[in-house]
Structures are given as C-alpha cells and as structure tokens.
C-alpha cells in the first residue's frame, strides 16, 4: 500500500514539476516575443521552414480529406434523399474542423519533431550554452522566431488547406457524384459564413503556438545524448498532437456553444 502511495506521489510530483517548468518556459518565451531585439531574418527563415515546406503535406492531406468527405457524406445523405447537403457538409467540416486540425497535426509531425530534434541536439552538444557565452539570449535567438513564425504561418497554411480541401470535395462532387458544378459552388459559397473561416484561423494560430512551444520546450530540456533527443522529439509530437485536439474542443466550445 505504501509503495502504491509512494508511486502516486512520485508521479504527481513529476507531473506538476514538468507542468510548472512548461508554464515558466512559455511565459519567458512569450514575454521575449514583445521585447527587442527581434531576429527578423530568423523569423522569415522559420516561416519558410514551417509554412512553405509544409505546403505539400498539408495540401495532399486537405485534398484527400475533402474528397473522402464528399464521398462519405453522399453515401450517408443519399439514404435520406439529402444529397444536396454534401457541398454544405464539406465546406463546413473543412473550414471549421478538418482544415485546421489536419494541418495542425501534419505540421506537428513534421515541424514539431524537427524543432525538438534541432534544439535538442544544440542542447546536448552545448551549442545553447555557447550562445549564452556569446552574449546571445537563446530564448530570443532560437525560440522566439519559431513561435512568431508558427503563430503567423499556420493560419495561412489553413486558408490554403481550406481552399484545397473544398476543391477536393468539388472534384468528387462533379466528376464522381454528377453534381451540377454551378449548384455545387453556389451551395458551398452561400452556406459558409465568415465565422466558420475565422474560427478555423483562430484555431490555426493557437495550434501554431502549441506546436512551436512544444517543439522548443522538449528540445530545450533535452538531456542524455542521442537517446535524450529521440525522447524529446517523440514527446514534442505526442504532446503537441494531444494539446491540439484538446484546444480544438475548447475553441469550438467557445465559438459555437451558443
């Protein structure tokens, strides 16, 4: 019994310790985002890394999701003679949920892992210590550009994912399900409201913050050589993915609960 209580106590202390460390790290990083110097060149470099190089994976995910969504919703709605709702379902699902969530998860896998691995390697090879000795704040130089880039680029990626996803549904609707192109487009445009798109973009910004924070946090606290960097990379992707799904529910609740 005592062993069991000891174990619970140990796990709890470890959890709160990590949580406290994460909160402290996040506050330090966010406060540095608003204080000069800001490394503009590094921000643009990270924007290209996060945004431009994620375009293929996000685009492919979005187009196939849109296509599958059109097929599946047609299968379901045809049972109630409500096939005309396919365009509405596709555009709503993509803009509100699938666009931001799938882009977030894909970027978490690609960029979150890369951030954790890069910063983690810098940590275990003393490159971060070297930055400090060269009078350069590692938070400002390494982390702030990644956070600013993540928060600003994810919404742009999601806009592109939304367009490609809706286009995927359109292709299936027109060429496979024999919808009239004009009717499909008017159903899409008439049904979507600004709030649907805005909620998706807000989600994207929050997901960008989560991905960059998790990648940098786990990388920054890497220890123990190559194995430690591997663990950090895994933790960065897993924690970012879970937090994205959790934040997605909370933001949806805030925007659409009324």
């Amino acid at each position: 019994m005592m062993k069991f209580l000891y174990l619970i106590g140990k796990i709890s202390i470890s959890f709160f310790n990590s949580f406290g460390l994460l909160v402290k790290f996040s506050l330090i990083c966010i406060s540095h985002c608003f204080r000069p110097p800001i490394y503009v060149h590094s921000i643009f470099k990270q924007m290209v890394e996060i945004g431009f190089y994620s375009l293929p994976v996000v685009g492919l995910t979005a187009i196939f999701s849109g296509m599958v969504l059109a097929l599946q919703s047609h299968t379901g709605f045809s049972r109630f003679n409500a096939e005309s709702a396919v365009a509405n379902v596709v555009v709503l699902s993509i803009t509100r949920e699938l666009g931001p969530v799938l882009a977030g998860l894909m970027v978490a896998g690609r960029v979150g892992a890369s951030m954790a691995a890069e910063i983690g390697t810098m940590r275990v090879t003393e490159q971060i210590d070297a930055l400090s000795t060269l009078s350069t704040n590692p938070y400002k130089y390494l982390i702030v550009p990644r956070i600013i880039a993540g928060v600003t680029v994810l919404p742009i990626l999601v806009i592109i994912a939304d367009i490609i996803g809706v286009f995927g549904g359109y292709i299936v609707g027109i060429f496979k399900l024999d919808f009239n192109p004009n009717v499909y487009l008017s159903n899409t445009i008439d049904f979507v409201e600004p709030l649907d798109v805005i909620s998706g973009l807000v989600k994207a910004s929050v997901f960008g913050l989560i991905i960059s924070l998790m990648g940098c946090f786990h990388g920054f606290h890497s220890k123990g050589g190559a194995q430690g960097v591997g663990i950090s990379t895994t933790n960065a992707v897993v924690s970012a993915s879970i937090l994205i799904l959790t934040a997605n529910y909370i933001i949806t609740e805030i925007f659409f609960s009324i």
Binding site: M122, T125, E126, Q127, A130, T133
Partner: peptide
C-alpha cells in the same frame, strides 16, 4: 569580456 572553448567545440552546425 569572456571567451569559451567548449570540450567538443560546440560550433553552430
């Protein structure tokens, strides 16, 4: 005022 040579040089990759 300080310079440092790290054990494995710690050069920025």
């Amino acid at each position: 005022k300080i310079g440092m040579l790290f054990q494995n040089a710690a050069l920025f990759d």
